[in-house]
């Protein structure tokens, strides 16, 4: 404790840099998709709901 109390602010900062830094072990964290490219429309939502309930044909997929 005595030793810490004798250090200046700059020395403390230096010391924390030397011994405080977390381990280096990078991981990729890809950004998730939360918004669809098209804005939400009631018509599209209704069509999706009907398709899910098998009351309307699902949108045809392109080849």
């Amino acid at each position: 404790m005595t030793k810490i109390a004798t250090l200046s602010a700059a020395e403390i900062e230096q010391r924390v840099q030397e011994i405080g830094q977390p381990l280096v072990a990078p991981l990729v964290m890809p950004k998730q998709v939360l918004e669809s490219a098209e804005p939400l429309s009631l018509r599209r939502a209704g069509r999706g709901l009907l398709a899910r309930l098998h009351l309307a044909p699902a949108r045809r997929q392109g080849m």
Binding site: P22, L23, V24, P26
Partner: peptide, 10 residues
């Protein structure tokens, strides 16, 4: 997130 990206692998 910053921590996970830099140190999470450990």
């Amino acid at each position: 997130e910053d921590f996970i990206m830099k140190s999470g692998g450990a």
